[in-house]
Structures are given as structure tokens and as C-alpha cells.
């Protein structure tokens, strides 16, 4: 059994074409997901049952089911309904790309809102008391004190979530999209060389994950300037 290096190099340009789609999926979903996450978080902490209940339900459903199933429900399932087929969104919802974006964004929104909430819970209660004692209102306290600290606390978990999202984009290949994994599967089907092709694609994903981790590491370092240095 030989390892065909030549095939690897031939395939890399083709896979970089897929990289474009992978990045589109990642960036768009992360952004929309973040917006959804903030909205969901605010709903969750609002204290009003009619906001908390939908938020909690949404989080529960999207963290409790596999992303693949979420994609399938949207891509294969939505067309079942006439009101979907007739709606103004149909041109989007019939496209696998937008179905994936929808599924990935909803998924990200649920996870990230919990991550942000975890960050919020990590803020020292004493500091919030000091703010209250100074007469700072709850809303002002949330914006100027809780948020900056919570964001810094959320960074490690958030970076892990972004990396998970990067890997989740590979699922787009199950609904005909030619992201990196989709391209790879096509090439493997033609060449019967799973190791060479899949391994090279895996390497590209790993490099992406590494870069994301490094990027967030730097951001975290910057945001942690004000913390006590670790040395005793």
C-alpha cells in the first residue's frame, strides 16, 4: 500500500476552493450566532417568564440535539410546509447553504449564550455591590462592569466554541455543499485514496483550529492586562 504524495499536492488547490465556502459558513454563522446569543442571554436574565421561557427552551433544544439532525430538519423538513414554500424566505430556505447557515447560527446562539452567562456568573458579587453602593443603576452596572469582565471570562470557552463551529461546517457536505470536506469526499470517491485526501483536509482544519486558538490567546492576554501577575 503506497501513499501517493503527488495526489495530495494535486488536490490541495481543489480543497482550497472548498476552504472559501468553509470560511463563509464559519464567519457568517459565528456572527449571526453571536447576535442571537446576546439577545437570548438578555432574554434569559430578564427575569420575565415570557422572555425566559422561550430562551431556555431554545437553548435546551439546540444543545440537546445533534447539529446534523438540526440541518436535516431545516433542509429536508421545512419544504414539507406549504407556508414555507410560499413565503418570502423560500429562495433562501431551498438552498442548502442558507439552511446550513440557519442551523449553525441557531446552534451557535444557544451555546454561546450559555457561555456568556457562565462568564456573567463569574463576576465577583462584591464588585457589583460596590457599584450599587455608589448609586450606579443595575443597567449601568451591567454595561460598564459586568460585561467587560464577563467577556474576558468567556473568552476561553468561546474560542473552543468557534473551533467546534469550524468542525461543524464539515457537516455541510452532507447536504451537497462543496466545502472542504465536500470537495474531499468527491475526490476520494473518484480516486479511492481516503488516507491521502482526508488526511490533507484534516491538516487544513487543524491549522485553522490552531490559528483560532492562537488568535484568541492573544486577545485574552490583552484583556487580562489588569489582572495580578501569576508569580507570587
Amino acid at each position: 500500500m503506497n501513499f501517493d504524495i503527488g495526489l495530495v499536492f494535486e488536490s490541495i488547490p481543489k480543497m482550497l476552493v472548498g476552504l472559501g465556502l468553509t470560511l463563509e459558513l464559519l464567519i457568517l454563522s459565528s456572527f449571526i450566532g453571536l447576535v442571537l446569543a446576546v439577545i437570548t442571554l438578555l432574554m434569559r436574565i430578564s427575569g420575565r417568564w415570557f422572555l425566559v421561557a422561550p430562551a431556555v427552551t431554545y437553548i435546551y433544544i439546540f444543545r440537546g440535539t445533534p447539529i446534523l439532525v438540526q440541518i436535516f430538519v431545516i433542509y429536508f423538513g421545512f419544504p414539507q410546509f406549504e407556508f414555507v414554500r410560499e413565503s418570502v424566505f423560500w429562495p433562501f430556505l431551498r438552498e442548502p447553504f442558507w439552511c446550513c447557515i440557519l442551523a449553525l447560527s441557531l446552534n451557535a446562539g444557544a451555546y454561546v449564550s450559555e457561555i456568556l452567562r457562565g462568564g456573567m456568573l463569574g463576576v465577583d458579587k462584591g464588585i457589583l455591590e460596590a457599584a450599587s453602593a455608589l448609586g450606579i443603576s443595575k443597567t449601568q452596572s451591567f454595561i460598564y462592569i459586568t460585561s467587560p469582565i464577563a467577556i474576558r471570562l468567556s473568552l476561553p470557552a468561546y474560542s473552543n466554541d468557534i473551533i467546534s463551529m469550524t468542525k461543524a461546517t464539515a457537516l455541510a457536505s452532507t447536504v451537497t455543499l462543496l466545502d472542504m470536506t465536500g470537495v474531499a469526499r468527491t475526490i476520494v470517491a473518484q480516486t479511492f485514496a481516503p488516507y491521502e485526501i482526508f488526511l490533507s483536509v484534516a491538516i487544513i482544519y487543524m491549522i485553522m483550529a490552531w490559528m483560532i486558538q492562537k488568535g484568541f490567546g492573544m486577545a485574552e492576554k490583552r484583556m487580562s492586562r489588569y489582572l495580578k501577575p501569576a508569580a507570587g
Partner: peptide, 28 residues
């Protein structure tokens, strides 16, 4: 109108000393 000083100081860690003092002045 009532100022409070805590046992564990409770300074805002993410703001500089000046920022700690001016935050309430600006907001309240």
C-alpha cells in the same frame, strides 16, 4: 448620599484607579 467601604475593597479590576473613581461620577 451614603458612601460604603468594604472589607474586600471591591475595586473594579478592569478599570484603572482613576477609572474606578470617575465611573460613578460620570454615570450617576
Amino acid at each position: 448620599e451614603v458612601g460604603m467601604v468594604f472589607q474586600s475593597f471591591n475595586l473594579f479590576p478592569h478599570l484603572k484607579v482613576l477609572g474606578n473613581l470617575t465611573l460613578a461620577l460620570k454615570l450617576v
